[in-house]
Design a protein around this nucleic acid. Structure first.
Lengths: 142, 142
DNA sequence: CTTACTGCAAATAGTTTGCAAGAAG
DNA sequence: CTTCTTGCAAACTATTTGCAGTAAG
């Protein structure tokens, strides 16, 4: 890896040690076009570093979450999904048929956050909106 | 229990057998002012029926969910929460400090659902919106 | 009576932790 | 060198399942 890339990761990890495992996992999460769960990330990571353990994946995901590098999503399943922190707030549309997840942006949530914050006396720091339904294909053949 | 109440439950359970366990659990979910997880429901149920098992709680929650009697919520935790199906769609505001959950209604989601459905070709059947943040008390003393 | 439902114990899935060995700084 | 991180195995938590007994219809 280039010196520049290492320096960039060092910045992202803010003082935490830059290990081969953390570098790899951060790259994979950022490159992944979609939401990964721990196991999927583990499988991808082992293609490049077969000795990497699942515990390390979990520990590293916690670390990234605490550093604010990734977001944790709670879909309709038993486990969490993660994605690299997005530059713009976006939300998710989940197909109950095929499980596919589509992202979308909506300016409406900003206004809603403001309204609710005032109404309930909350300091709102984040929003997670899931719309559930059926994509065009699954809707036709139920 | 009155005949009327039993008839009402028979209707809710739509052909499934009306057992003492199901009656009790349905009552408890409906009476609970807040969102219960399986274990909390189990503890409450055992006060009245000490022999009731946790497996029955899980099996019954699945049943209720399939019958559309309850909604399943996915908060920032490892397990699900359940609440009796609400007459009006409402959403949740979660305090990251004390874990308290406040419900709110917002007409905005209706419009958003329509827009997104058209834009992405989805048939949207449900929405789950969580706002995360800090309540007035937790915000003052972080 | 027949078949669905339950309790129990054992199995499973996802995640966490203790500890000795290894690597970052 | 010192301290943080890792891999491994074992522990743990939430949930599911097999099965024989029990009860609803």
């Amino acid at each position: 890896m280039s010196n520049k890339a290492i320096a960039k990761q060092r910045r992202a990890l803010r003082g935490q040690r830059v290990t081969a495992q953390r570098s790899l996992l951060l790259d994979l999460v950022r490159q992944a076009g979609r939401h990964l769960d721990a196991d999927e990330l583990y499988r991808r990571a082992r293609e490049r570093e077969p000795r990497l353990s699942l515990s390390t994946v979990y520990r590293t995901l916690h670390l990234f979450k605490n550093l604010g590098l990734i977001d944790e999503r709670h879909f309709d399943e038993e486990h969490h999904h993660y994605e690299a922190k997005a530059s713009t707030e976006h939300h998710h549309l989940v197909c109950l048929g095929c499980g596919n997840v589509v992202e979308f942006v909506s300016p409406i949530t900003k206004q809603m956050k403001r309204d609710i914050a005032r109404e309930k006396g909350f300091k709102v720091t984040g929003a997670e909106l899931h719309l559930m339904g059926y994509c065009a294909r699954c809707y036709k053949r139920p």
